[in-house]
Nucleic acid binder design. Sequence first.
DNA 1: GTGAAAGCGCTAACAC
DNA 2: GTGTTAGCGCTTTCAC
Lengths: 341, 341
Amino acid sequence: MGKQRPGAAPTLEEVAALAGVGRGTVSRVINNVAGVKDSTRRAVQRAIAELGYVPNLAARSLAGRRADAVALVMTEPDWRKFGEPFFSETIRSVGDALTDTKMQLLLTQVRTDAERRRFVEYARGGRVDGVLLMSLHAEDPLPDMLADAGLPTVMLGRRSGDESISYVDADNTGGARSAVDHLLSSGRSAVATITGPLDMYVAQCRLRGYREALDRAGVEVKPSWVVEGDFTEQSGRAAMAEIIARDPEVDAVFAASDGMAAGALNALRAAGRQVPRDVAVVGFDDFLLAQHTDPRLTTVRQPIEEIGRTMVRLLLEEMEESPVAWRHVVLRTELVLRDSG
Amino acid sequence: MGKQRPGAAPTLEEVAALAGVGRGTVSRVINNVAGVKDSTRRAVQRAIAELGYVPNLAARSLAGRRADAVALVMTEPDWRKFGEPFFSETIRSVGDALTDTKMQLLLTQVRTDAERRRFVEYARGGRVDGVLLMSLHAEDPLPDMLADAGLPTVMLGRRSGDESISYVDADNTGGARSAVDHLLSSGRSAVATITGPLDMYVAQCRLRGYREALDRAGVEVKPSWVVEGDFTEQSGRAAMAEIIARDPEVDAVFAASDGMAAGALNALRAAGRQVPRDVAVVGFDDFLLAQHTDPRLTTVRQPIEEIGRTMVRLLLEEMEESPVAWRHVVLRTELVLRDSG
DNA sequence: GTGAAAGCGCTAACAC
DNA sequence: GTGTTAGCGCTTTCAC
């Protein structure tokens, strides 16, 4: 007879007593370990149902030295960013990639120093087995803090050219290059660009791709062709207006984000320029651009679904090893031409 | 001398040995319990720093019977919703309300049955001390599952008129009524409404407020004045077009969401109607509406910041008691007139 | 003010 | 196949 403790949640031991078996057997049943007689298993399951038993995860975690949970950290203070498809789809695909595991996905916001400290304690304290990081700024100390603690960690994108910690990134340089190649091959030559904030590596890469394509084609980049935005629609509009003012001869634009591409289109229309007849626009990603119905728009698409899936795969691999080895994956982008006639 | 176990994380016991004190004392120091001599406390802190000690949260949880974490569950399958200010601001304010506690906020997505099952195991397993629920559909079994497990739970909004589980809601009926009162008192009389999905209690309340205001004013609601949308901008546009087609005499519209209000404005402009001279529009919330520069727009504003703060307060209160008692809070809304001249 | 000791509920290794 | 046992690392009495 197990001692009844009214009010308290039933324990594995009480289940064992009720089923007339040892604790080890109950543990095997709840963990689906093979090698338990079928009749025994059923008896245990009946006892579990009768008592409404639920395993105490703290005890499991302590004894098993794992949390069966991973964190996905959002360091972005502006939540509206997570309404953008690039982020929301990544989160969705990470969740999907974890459905076949017993890992619980925990999204955590880390906006302030206090939140960072608390999260690092949480993670180092063993409440998660690994950490995924999104939307990182170059100077964020969080990745290194986690890495120093020996925690499996995977970042979405990298902070610089020689990133050590594991990351999954898109081929931003190659994607930008293919976009500009496309513009050049369709007869344009005065190709301007609206870059992202140049303290972000992703923006540097897309600018580099732009320059490489023009270099190879023997086109000299005029300083007036390069204007920096901040990835938003508004900054794209302002940048496009700036470009028109500086050099009215520009006949094509590569925008380093879809938001800025949408802004550029709006600014061109406001200026009475035909898009894309007078000026061709290529944007990175096509979320906002999708709302523009012009069939001749072109975009560089990132393999979002694959990004989330790959991040999870790398993290699970890292969790198998000690010490953790870092992995770097760069995924190809795809140039999408809507023009079909 | 504590046994050194290279590779493993240092334990409280090793800290105690290094500091030359008992385990109890170290525990008191890391938990900031009063009644430790200052010199002892410093010695322990030195040992902690030297060893890089971090408490094992599973062990703390097991011994202390608490997780020091709360979950905020998003049952919305469409993540873009969380880009909307109503949700993103709520999440932000919940995070803010928790900064002064040692609680870690965990956001979890529950879209599928598998995810629901896993989360309930997680919560019942004691990994969180309480649960906040957002964006619930009426038939979602999750709240009852958590309540049956005796877990402190607070919902954002309620599922029906006689909700038992704790919730924090805005006064949707009163807000809608004040919006329509405003329209009537400014000389309108043919007031139509674009409702939300009527299987959601929030939409029912806003429709009721609309009807009540017209009833009190002795205006009979024509069936053609009530069109159902789904809270999106697109549905608002379609609904407005429908209303114009059915009854061109309509001179005012109450939209049950800001998105639908924005859609209504766009549809009116497309139809060549003067807004708000010909047709006055009042929307619930003013996020999308904020982009409309018309100074004569009016909105019903929900006290978002207070919603998040209140949810946290109720949850912390519930966590103090056993069994849990449910709490219901309805917060006043505010009619915001931009019209200042 | 501090140390010693008794659990918290589980997993995993080992015996039979 | 199944029972037994030794921890996992902490909090919390209870002595002193």
